[in-house]
Simulated scan of single mutants.
Amino acid sequence: MKAKIALIAALVTVAGIALSAAPPAYAQGFDITLVPAKVELEVQPGQGAEFSIEIRNNATDAAELSVYPMDYSVNPDNTFIFEEPGYYSYSCATWIEIKEETVSIPAGSVANIPFAVNVPAGAEPGGHFAVIFFQDASTPQPDQGAELTPRIGTQVLLTVPGDIVREGGIVDFTVESDYFSLWAPPADGSAGWPARNTGYHLEVENTGNVHITVSAAINYRSSFGFGSGGVDLGAMTILPGTVRYFEGILPSPPLFGWFKAEAVIMYGPDQFTFDVEKRAETSFTVIPFLWILIIILGVLALWAAIHFARKKLRVSVKLERKPDKGS
């Protein structure tokens, strides 16, 4: 899959006292695309494999990049944590051979950078992971102060054959009920109250010993009321023994009723195959109490206005019919 890398991190280094508010010129010109975003390999213990990563320099200046591997983990809220090679027990960063520690890519050019991975003979079966970073190594401009050093990386997802368990499941699934909003959020996303933000939360756990790439979707239908729909949540890779969250706002949420929602996750032996399916259900309610209150208050106000007008009319008619005392 040719897509811009999903892992983009910024490494902040302090080079001196800031003398200018302008950002460094070399950081502004960092525009790199890596293909692929994820490298999946299966290598037997005691053997090796070679692979390459394509670097596209989309900037108007040449890119000087330093290349290095790191360990990583992912929190349930999908934030990444990076550590030195060998920090995690499932690391394969120390197995990766960096053949070119620095690379230079001319402006508008593409280069294929070769790598090798050598799996130790006693490697534990299952998943082993790392990220290969390409970091801006250009010389900073003088007197630029605090400098932002951008980097971009490709995930390496390596499986050592053996006793492999590829298993995932839904830990929790909820959709928020709504009682006090007035209208739906804009089509481009959520908005603050009184817009209707019907949030969903889906937790998926990898209980196996290899990574799984999970595709997820939510569909809902009314048990009583009006509206049905769904949302494609996309896909994410979940490392063994970890939980990841799919969270967001239902687009075009229903207006009124009781609803059943179903979450569907699918995964398979690689990031392109989805042949295992798991499902979970929940329910949520949408009752626009504020609209009901506004309608009731409107009806009461109309009734009061009519009652007052009729009373005033009766008094006026009575005064007109009252006989003159002097006649």
Rank of each mutant, 00 (worst) to 15 (best):
V119G: 00
L148C: 11
G145A: 10
S66H: 08
P76I: 07
Y90M: 14
I132D: 01
T79Q: 10
F129D: 07
A123M: 01
A62P: 01
V74T: 15
V119M: 04
F80C: 10
T149P: 01
Q144H: 14
P125T: 04
I96A: 03
P69G: 02
P69Y: 11
Q141H: 09
I98C: 02
A111F: 10
P69T: 05
P106C: 04
A130D: 04
Q141T: 14
T139M: 10
S89P: 10
N112P: 02
F134G: 07
I113A: 06
N118Q: 14
A62V: 01
E97A: 09
Q135E: 09
F82G: 06
Y68Q: 02
P114S: 14
T60N: 12
G145W: 11
S89Y: 15
L65M: 00
E84N: 09
W95K: 00
S138W: 12
L65D: 08
S73P: 02
V110E: 08
I96L: 04
G108Q: 05
K99P: 00
S89N: 09
L65C: 05
W95D: 10
L148K: 10
D71F: 05
D136T: 09
V103Q: 10
A137G: 13
F80T: 14
V131T: 11
A107T: 09
V110R: 11
P142Y: 15
T102W: 05
D77I: 12
G145C: 05
P85Y: 11
Y87G: 04
T60Q: 06
G108W: 10
V131P: 01
E64N: 13
Y87H: 13
G145F: 02
D71R: 10
V131L: 06
H128E: 02
Y90V: 10
V74L: 11
V67D: 01
F115P: 03
S109N: 11
A137W: 04
G86L: 05
T139E: 15
S73Y: 12
P106N: 08
A107R: 01
G126Q: 03
G122R: 03
G145Y: 07
G86I: 13
G86S: 03
L65K: 03
K99E: 13
Q141P: 04
P69M: 06
P106H: 12
A137E: 13
S138R: 13
F134E: 00
T79R: 12
A63Q: 06
S109V: 14
I105E: 09
E124I: 15
A59E: 03
C92H: 11
S104D: 08
I81W: 06
